[in-house]
Design a protein around this nucleic acid. Structure first.
Lengths: 261, 261
DNA sequence: CGATGTATTGACCAGCTTCAAGTAACGTGG
DNA sequence: CCACGTTACTTGAAGCTGGTCAATACATCG
């Protein structure tokens, strides 16, 4: 299947023509650094389209060697790899502001797929955007490196969880981390929890557990009163610090402002 | 413990003054791209010292927020994270040419430690080298991003192993991957195997297994004739393609030329 | 109102961990 | 040169964490 087919938006959901990056609603969040006007201009020139995709849609196919490059503007997605017999490992969950397709472009090591968890909006860039960013404005090149290194740090944490933590600790760590990452985007500051679109199968695949055991682990966390499900599949953590202790996770999670490309 | 203490070389092993990068023996290997003279000059200006360290020495302490930046010139090392109760996850094995300390510099997510596996020689850079590389020469900035993305791809593979593969598959995948990565540095082209400095404990910590089970798994691989130990703890793989099939690993492993900074 | 995907639960069992000991290899100091 | 400490490797037995199999409930949706 060609990438172009994958990227063509479903008819009713085609986005309006690319709006100026300076009006991107994401940039208003304190989570992101504020770029200079020059930086904004360079980024804007590389922007090719804003596209909408449905939940469960494939954004990048495993093995694609000419995958596109985009930034997630709204919604959740996940990166994954599968073995020949179908076993799937979710590598990382991607939230708004995450830069997608970098690994694919740079290295030809066995690649990964990307699939949406919710309806998403993405900002698609020119294929050679990574190089152009570096060439045009070193500060933006530095930002790309930052983003890449930052995702590496998330991978480190996931690997630590999957390799060393027990099932209970793993799920606790995952929920806590995702909750913290999603909080800056929650409408009401997260008082009623944050929308949490992962199924138990996703949790299982992310943490290297079976579906059944992921379910039992979630029940156990619920039984201890550490997680509560609100309406609209919202995740509420009544006592994050207790969860963090259970998971042996550093708390609170500090998130310094990050670049948005 | 301060980083300066960690970095001061043991008296007898102090390296000679930094030699010009253009004579770096690593660069002669076809594994690495050949830089322009301008690139070499910029890199050379950022070079601060060449240092030797013994096997088992700590290069970067977990939690250090001002960790140094270097390139591994010779020898093996590994990145790791530990939980409060001592469980250790080895994140990645580092071989000559690998750039160390990038994650640490960019993000303040919980950090990792780096420890040598063999005696090593490293090329230490100025603290702000990452930014300088981007500013002085975009092509070098791009190389840094490439290296970061490439390490991300290795992490992806490790996460897939630890999350989805059985113990036998995991160990097979690890040995095969390391063998392939070490091959370009083997003196005789690897005909007598490659030096393999990991202990069973390292293998266990890298793959999320207990020491005992790592040992049993190695025995099983040996019993099937898939791995052989030569003199000087050299690893010989009589039938790499059979190992790859067992591990569900893409084979052969392609390694395109990579930048060396 | 079936069809499909997700959640739920019990029974069984196996892969892996833990515990416990013992062996081998190597460097150090007496 | 040997005793000894240290580190890595080895092996068996027992048990637990988490996987597999199977079936049911529940929801949403065309």
């Amino acid at each position: 299947m060609s990438i172009d087919v994958l990227l063509s938006p479903t008819p009713p959901s085609r986005a309006a023509a690319a709006a100026g990056c300076e009006h991107c609603p994401l940039r208003r969040l304190p989570l992101f650094t504020t770029p200079s006007s020059t930086e904004l201009e360079v980024i804007g020139n590389l922007k090719r389209a804003e596209l909408d995709h449905e939940a469960g849609e494939l954004l990048i196919a495993e093995g694609a060697d000419d995958s596109p490059l985009f930034t997630l503007l709204a919604g959740w997605a996940f990166r994954y790899k599968t073995l020949a017999d179908g076993r799937r490992q979710i590598l990382n969950i991607m939230l708004p502001g995450d830069f997608i397709g970098l690994q694919q472009k740079m290295s030809d090591a066995a690649s990964h797929g990307v699939r949406t968890l919710t309806p998403v909006r993405v900002c698609r860039f020119a294929r050679d955007a990574v190089w152009t960013l570096h060439r045009e404005l070193p500060s933006l090149g530095y930002d790309v490196t930052w983003l890449s290194a930052n995702e590496g740090a998330l991978l480190d944490d996931n690997l630590l969880s999957v390799g060393q933590r027990s099932a209970l600790e793993r799920v606790a760590a995952l929920l806590l981390t995702l909750h913290a990452r999603a909080l800056p985007f929650a409408a009401d500051g997260g008082r009623d929890g944050v929308v949490f679109p992962l199924t138990q199968q996703h949790i299982a695949d992310a943490m290297g557990l079976s579906l059944v055991h992921a379910h039992r682990t979630l029940r156990q966390l619920g039984g201890r009163g550490l997680i509560v499900w609100g309406p609209g599949s919202r995740l509420i953590l009544p006592d994050p610090s207790a969860l963090a202790r259970l998971a042996h996770l550093r708390w609170p999670l500090v998130q310094s402002p990050r670049p948005l490309i």
